[in-house]
């Protein structure tokens, strides 16, 4: 009875929202989108917001990857918030899984193939993760996936060596320093140009590694931060078993 009611309710909600979502102009020409309006200068523009991003994005931010331009520069403040969300998640998991004295339990060694393989792969995976976030402004990817890839390298170590433990202090110091970098870059922008998170470095030539101003800097910080946070989460989850 309860289950049937729940299913009926779910279907009802689905229908109600589906009726609204069919009205999304999916795959339409961008020129048909409504034009944006600037509430401060009180002017209506002659193009829509996505159109502006695609047309002027490269000039505004210096990044070739449009997604990065939006994520780190146009809406960098949201990204700062999302980084904080991840930081909170790792802190929350860490505080909930906190145990005063961890009891060491006997654990089985994993087999030799896994051990050798992970030893071999560890460096490459880290390198790949670093590549992803360093080239975030040029190619798809960026701080979040790069950090996740780095964390998955550590995950491999956890699987291969059951006794392996990343030092929590070091992890938290690296995530703190990365977070501080983000905030300090923002504050420097505030001091130099009067806008928080202002892209104050020269843009350089597009498609070069050293371009797009502060975007690579921020993405490296995000990558380090996400990597150490996800590793910390994995580490906390492992801690329960012992």
């Amino acid at each position: 009875m309860k289950k049937a009611l729940a299913i009926v309710l779910a279907i009802l909600i689905f229908i109600v929202f589906a009726l609204a979502f069919v009205k999304i102009p999916f795959g339409e020409k961008m020129s048909t989108y409504p034009h944006y309006y600037n509430p401060i200068t009180n002017q209506t523009s002659n193009m829509s917001l996505p159109q502006h991003y695609l047309t002027y994005g490269k000039n505004d931010t210096g990044a070739t990857n449009m997604v990065t331009a939006i994520v780190v520069d146009y809406r960098g403040f949201d990204t700062l918030g999302e980084v904080t969300v991840l930081f909170l998640a790792s802190t929350g998991v860490g505080s909930l899984m906190y145990v005063e004295n961890k009891v060491k339990k006997k654990v089985r060694r994993s087999n030799a193939v896994v051990e050798t393989g992970s030893k071999l792969l560890f460096g490459f995976i880290i390198l790949f993760g670093a590549y992803i976030f360093i080239h975030g402004h040029l190619t798809p990817g960026g701080g979040f996936p790069g950090g996740a890839v780095i964390a998955s390298a550590f995950l491999l170590l956890y699987l291969a060596y059951p006794k392996f433990h990343a030092k929590h202090e070091k992890l938290s110091v690296s995530e703190s320093i990365a977070g501080l970098t983000f905030v300090i870059v923002g504050l420097i922008g505030l001091i130099i140009a009067g806008y928080f998170l202002y892209n104050f470095l020269p843009f350089g030539l597009p498609t070069y590694l050293f371009s797009a101003g502060v975007i690579p800097l921020i993405y490296v910080a995000i990558g380090v931060k996400v990597g150490s946070e996800l590793t910390a989460i994995v580490d906390s989850m492992m801690g329960v078993r012992e």
């Binding site: 600037n38 401060i40 505004d60 146009y74 809406r75 960098g76 140009a193 806008y195 928080f196 202002y198």
Partner: peptide, 15 residues
């Protein structure tokens, strides 16, 4: 008080 973040006018950036 309006505080523009990142130096982009409102609907483009965050305010």
């Amino acid at each position: 008080v309006f505080d523009i973040i990142g130096g982009f006018q409102p609907p483009l950036g965050i305010v």
